[in-house]
Write a protein that binds this DNA or RNA. Sequence first.
DNA 1: TGGTCCATTTACAGTATTGTCGGTAGGAGG
DNA 2: CCTCCTACCGACAATACTGTAAATGGACCA
Lengths: 204, 204
Amino acid sequence: MRVRRTAEEARERILDAAEARLRRGGPEAIRLQEIAADAGISHPTILHHFESRDGLTRELAKRIGRKLGEEILEAIARSPATEASAVEMIEHVFSTLRDTGTARLLAWRELSFESADGGAETREILDGIAGILHERRVAHAKEQRLRPPPREDSWFIVRLATAATLGDALSTEAFGATGAERRSADLRFRRWFGRLLHEHIERS
Amino acid sequence: MRVRRTAEEARERILDAAEARLRRGGPEAIRLQEIAADAGISHPTILHHFESRDGLTRELAKRIGRKLGEEILEAIARSPATEASAVEMIEHVFSTLRDTGTARLLAWRELSFESADGGAETREILDGIAGILHERRVAHAKEQRLRPPPREDSWFIVRLATAATLGDALSTEAFGATGAERRSADLRFRRWFGRLLHEHIERS
DNA sequence: TGGTCCATTTACAGTATTGTCGGTAGGAGG
DNA sequence: CCTCCTACCGACAATACTGTAAATGGACCA
């Protein structure tokens, strides 16, 4: 009683299982046998599709990056294009990133592939976001007949938002009680952070 | 020709070696044999002192937390006690944390022991810092006859600084060229962040 | 229907890694 | 000097994990 999938389908399934293990079990949880069990296949099938365990982790890291890009672009597309909402945009982007648990995966990626080439891709995405943000701010300044903010300021805003989200998602346990209380504190913190950035931007 | 150390000394040596491996090689680099080789001992000695590999990692995680606490407290002690320097204090604390590479270790710790009890300890440290910051702010407000900021505001400042530092240290690769150019950008970013917090605090 | 492709499996090989055991030796205290 | 404690080691056991080889069968196509 053997299920046969397309190669693409099988690969996705395997990556899904590996990702789930990574979310739950930390950086050492990528074991071929366990992943295979989760995916309902035998472990040599994984090797058939990814060459080696290393191939699997590399592919997984790539996919995490791709998914992140998609999530962010989607969030940008959904956010209204008014000038003041630039902050909201950022906030929304990164709260999405966080709630989906992608932050943990990103951290694993950074930790595991310190000198990998994957960083360039991430950087492009962030450059893109910073560009959009900056354009909006420049347009806003023109309207109000104020002088435009330095480019680096916009870049730093994105950098801060990224770092804060990543860091916050990682160290959540340290920041308060669990359950409902924590959720509401998380929300208040996010809002507080949004306001902080907003005020900074308003001050141009 | 056999070297005999005190148990305490041996444990420290082993933990040092393990920590170094973790810094360089990522989360999967904790191998008893390699660590033993680095420490100039045989691997059963590690097991003798730590029961099991798991015992070693747990102990290492604990020590990382302790060291962090010490570093932070030291930095606090060194920073002047004037009110306005509260931000500087934070900035200094976390730049120290970052430059020593402790941020990477913390990330490993969070990733590996998701539901461990270690979180409480970290939280206590942060609570302490937030307390100090808040006291200073309250005193400052009293002097200026302004109304004191909400406690949660101080707490959130610390939370943001922590998260941002941790996240930034992790994702540094994604943020720009390496070498001298990056260093100066890092410095500017830190300053920028410091000013951002400072302005927020000044606005009470 | 017969044939080909290839995703999948079972069984196995090889190796790396953790953990155990018995014994050895350094050093402190009597 | 003798004795005890225990840090330490070499050799071995057990297991866990990755990777290989050969066979199997599902699906599509002629």
